[in-house]
């Protein structure tokens, strides 16, 4: 997350942080790559062992340090490598998504998607779609830590 794309001399480009579960969505990203599908460079992927590993603090930290949008991606319900990780995260992240919206974030800023390891095309589509939505929304200033911003904009 150190290379903030946000405000370079060439204008604003969104920074999307995507937490992908190792077994499905990250592999889906790999497939997208090996199939030579392209998705926006705005998306920075962070691999997590399972969507159930997501601590909502990861999401808030991403917003603090410059993310304009955050996407969590995991295996489809029923396919979690650890059986129930995504069933748990479905409940947790649903509650959390509504909470961040209640705090004043636009719904598009934080999203969750199920992407399997065979869905390279879906991976590319979802990454493109969130990037476009965030581009349309503009930069996120909510929860942005000004101290961190001054460091990253120099990078």
């Amino acid at each position: 997350m150190s290379a903030a794309l946000n405000e370079t001399a060439g204008g604003w480009e969104p920074l999307i942080v995507s937490f992908c579960c190792n077994w499905c969505s990250y592999a889906g990203g790999d497939l997208a790559g090996t199939s030579r599908m392209s998705y926006p460079v705005n998306v920075k992927v962070i691999r997590v062992p399972c969507s159930g590993r997501m601590n909502p603090m990861f999401v808030l930290r991403a917003f603090q340090r410059g993310a304009d949008g955050v996407l969590v991606a995991g295996c489809h319900p029923g396919d979690c490598h650890y059986t129930s990780g995504n069933y748990q995260s479905r409940r947790r992240l649903s509650a959390f998504k509504r909470l961040v919206e209640f705090a004043g974030f636009e719904p598009e800023r934080f999203e969750v998607r199920w992407i399997s390891s065979s869905e390279g095309d879906k991976f590319a589509e979802e990454m493109t779609s969130i990037t476009e939505k965030i581009k349309a929304l503009g930069p996120n200033r909510k929860m942005r830590d000004a101290r961190w911003q001054s460091v990253t904009s120099k990078v």
Partner: peptide, 22 residues
Amino acid sequence: GRAYQPSENFMFHLVRAYHGTG
């Protein structure tokens, strides 16, 4: 963080409240 600024306030309040889900 300990700083007195909006970003840290939101961090505390969202996480505290979220820990109370259910």
